[in-house]
Amino acid sequence: MTSVQAEPNDYDSFAVAYAAKNETSLHNAYYERPAMLDLAGDVTGRRVLDAGCGAGPLAAALRERGAIVTGFDSSAQMLELARKRLGDDTELHLAELGGPLPFPDAAFDDVVASLVLHYLEDWTAALAELRRVLVPGGRLLVSVDHPVIGLVQPDAADYFATYRRSEEWTMGGHTAVMSFWHRPLHAMTDAFTSAGFRIDVISEPFPAPGAREKFPEAFVDKPSGAFVCFLFFVLRAA
């Protein structure tokens, strides 16, 4: 029997199952994570903050590419998994995106925010803190749910509205209620520029090579190989 959690987005309740799936899934391992790494490019020697690091797969990949990585997450269980993976060489903190962060001003050359901003109704405080901890000219790399996703959900509303939508995820025998905030593209770009960022890149990438061979069933109705799942940004701190 599965159980449904009372509070949405409680990663502590299914951290191990989620982390295991994240390692090999189409959307994480063959789509979102490779796209973020491609956008990051050469990170050798760069101080990178992984905002919402989870169990640490992106942090580990960035560190392998020569970055000096720090991470934070709001889930204690996910952070424990990240510590086991990354060891004592990577600084990790329990902190909330949208709250005060335990870092000085201009502490990082890059921040990666991988599939985390869409959990927040209001991006103002989160973006202000991420801008604060970046050096002038530093980069914020963001991935979020693509705004068209909300249009095909049962609780879809006006595309131009900002509204919460929910899904149920079942992993490891546990059913979790996950809530996300839909916002239209112009609301995202307005939030970024209002927070003092310049938009360098907006990207809608294809899955990584090998995805079609490993997950052929996912491409039956996608002959071009295109996915419309996530939207990516590279932003520059003014």
Rank of each mutant, 00 (worst) to 15 (best):
Y159S: 14
A95L: 12
P207Q: 00
G66I: 07
P209V: 06
T193A: 14
L151F: 02
T70E: 11
L39V: 03
H182M: 03
P102T: 01
L120F: 05
K21P: 06
T44Y: 04
V201A: 05
D109Y: 06
D190F: 03
E64D: 13
D221R: 14
S203R: 15
A15G: 13
G52I: 05
K222G: 04
T162H: 10
L58Y: 02
E217M: 09
A128D: 07
C229A: 15
F232D: 02
Y119F: 14
A238C: 11
G173D: 09
L62E: 02
D155V: 07
S143C: 02
A106K: 12
F160S: 15
F219H: 14
G52F: 04
A61Y: 09
L151G: 09
F72E: 02
Q153A: 14
L117Y: 03
V4L: 15
D42S: 06
S224F: 08
L81V: 10
P154S: 04
G71D: 05
S13V: 05
K21T: 12
G138W: 02
F232A: 02
S194E: 09
A35R: 06
P205D: 08
V228K: 03
W123H: 03
H118W: 08
E32A: 08
R83C: 14
V144E: 12
F197M: 11
Y31D: 04
V111Q: 09
L141N: 01
A107K: 09
H118G: 00
A125K: 07
E91T: 03
V135I: 11
A95N: 12
V144I: 14
L97G: 03
L58P: 00
Q153R: 15
R33I: 14
L134Q: 01
A29G: 14
E168H: 04
A40M: 11
C229L: 15
D89I: 06
A82M: 13
S179D: 01
L120H: 09
